[in-house]
Design a binder for these strands. Structure first.
Lengths: 349, 349
DNA sequence: TTGTAGGCGTTATCAG
DNA sequence: CTGATAACGCCTACAA
């Protein structure tokens, strides 16, 4: 840490106000802290002076005394998430929780060396730059989570489920979402349901695929191999998966692509093969990315509120901080909801 | 500010280390601050103890003593910019500058009440939550800038030029960009150049339009009314503008749409009218949004590096902070570069 | 080479 | 009702 220049200006302090009023700093503190034990006269005199002198308590001093920074750290992968709608939705949720608590946001990049190196991370913690951490959608193989647990840092993982049960995390309920879609299709008379899952390294993709398999088993519906395609959360992947499905003899009456982007690809492939959506084959997405504006396909999908996840996740952290404990370990699921649009219809006879 | 719970744990302090070694806190401070005047023996003993005890200085205490927060505030319109690639690019630039300076990012929403209300903003400042502010792409009518100037807050406006000359700002050089495009077209033999400008409330749109007009005047080329369309930075707007241009008798050999999105709309309209790009009409964009991946049109455009703007803008702030002054008022332009692709070609005879 | 004193701005505690 | 004192953790300045 290099030598620093002197502060630009000297701000008004308690003592300044006290001197101005001819009282002690303590009295001023009491008045401004709205504690009683001060005569009306003195109180008014102090208030007037404080206002006149533009007094504002120094957060630096207060936090120093309380040994807190007043900052909630938001840690994420800058390059991957900072520019995403998902991140801004999550932040909107954080804001709702933090509003009026006197906390501000500090922003950290999980891809910086600090997070790479347990030593550095510990250092960050011991320096008390933030009182707690909200870790937005970490990657599956992020190792720093273990370090944070070991250090006893207060943090919550947002938007991902972590295998390690000692980690507190919150995300939308993937299983519930897939189940809602499947039940919806079932209620429309579909039994021949295919699925194009996402990349295996994504926890959410694995959970969604698993939920689909489980549903089919529960319903006693056999799933031929080509009904379960490995894909990715991208349009092309959905298209390719659908092509592979459609070239087989046994053809589904519905295709579940648990991600809106790939669902659009599926729609494209179906139309390209001369079939109609939803008359011949129904299609479901997941995420409710509002892609409908760009295309003319109105997807039946699952709405997951990143804002809600952010709001509740940050609440977990703040409550823990308020009571001086760590957020409870384990995962919390946030309910999702089914959005029925025009890409699904009763199964063809 | 409500009552706070006690800190989760008590961190090791200088005094702890000192006691452990049987020396004074001052000696420990000297060792860890790497100042001389300490015997080798003592130094080593202290270092060992500090390491063993996981000592790390409290940033809280240091900053309190120095009356700085160690945070650089990044203020932006959460809802509008947080989820944009632009923002993440700018942040990447900030990171490069801040790296290793011991500063972290604090994040503020310019749409929060705090920024709405001069009183609140002053309060934020007097509380010293951040040492300086980087204000990313504020809107033209944002009033808080005046308040910040009045308060003497150290800040730099990033990505917008501010009319008020008392404000330090930095952005890419719009005029230069338009000029580069015009010169490029001129070198290809184009004289009949039309332009579809962006929304009037955007400073960049106004500057780009003005630069176009200026170029045409300098070249002594008359600009019929329909050659200058008011549009918006959106695909549809570009399309509509082009349609209006093409239905007139005097037809341009090139259309300048100083924004990639609207340029794509222009291309669309030209093709729809049975003409070819670039054989019949050349098209230029601005921003280099890498939209080419999505479409088959390879736009000739202007590359503006948001990262570069962020990097240099944050440097302005940090340098000012280091020398204890305010960033110099006035605007700084960052060079842009011409990217020639296949949407432009020699003018048809 | 090492240690002591004091200050940064606030608040809790105890004394008047 | 009001004020003095101490403490938070570090650093600068001065003293031994």
């Amino acid at each position: 840490m290099q030598r620093q220049a002197p502060p630009l200006i000297r701000h008004t302090t308690l003592h300044d106000v006290a001197r101005e009023c001819g009282v002690s700093a303590m009295t001023v503190s009491r008045v401004l802290g709205d504690r009683d034990g001060v005569s009306k006269q003195t109180r008014e005199r102090v208030l007037a002076a404080a206002r006149r002198m533009n007094y504002e308590p120094s957060a630096l001093a207060i936090n120093f005394a309380r040994n807190r920074s007043g900052f909630i750290g938001v840690a994420t992968h800058f390059k991957g998430l900072l520019g995403s709608i998902y991140f801004s939705d999550v932040m909107a949720g954080f804001q709702q929780t933090l509003h009026g608590t006197g906390n501000d946001f500090a922003l950290f990049d999980t891809m910086s060396e600090v997070f790479d190196n347990p030593e550095e991370l510990a250092k960050l913690y011991r320096q008390r730059r933030a009182d707690g951490l909200l870790i937005v959608a970490p990657h599956r193989d992020d190792k720093y989570l273990k370090t944070l647990v070991k250090l006893g840092v207060a943090f919550v993982v947002i938007g991902e489920r972590v295998d390690d049960h000692s980690v507190p995390s919150i995300s939308c309920n993937d299983e519930q979402g897939v189940r809602l879609l499947c039940e919806h299709l079932k209620s429309l008379g579909h039994r021949e349901i295919a699925c194009i899952s996402g990349a295996e390294y994504l926890g959410s993709a694995r959970r969604r695929r698993k939920a689909y398999i489980e549903f089919m088993r529960e319903e006693g519906i056999s799933v031929p191999k080509h009904f379960l395609q490995r894909g990715a959360y991208m349009m092309e992947a959905g298209e390719e998966g659908a092509v592979r499905i459609l070239k087989e003899k046994r053809r589904p009456t519905a295709i579940l692509a648990p991600n809106d982007l790939s669902a659009l690809g599926v729609v494209k492939a179906i139309r390209a093969s001369g079939l109609r959506v939803p008359e011949d084959i129904s299609v479901c997405g997941f995420d409710d990315l509002h892609l409908a504006v760009e295309s003319r396909y109105e997807l039946t999908t699952i709405h997951q509120s990143a804002m809600e996840v952010g709001k509740r996740g940050s609440r977990l952290l703040l409550e823990a901080l308020d009571t001086g404990r760590l957020p409870a370990a384990g995962h919390v699921d946030v309910d999702v909801s089914l959005v029925v649009r025009s890409s699904t219809a009763p199964a063809a006879a």
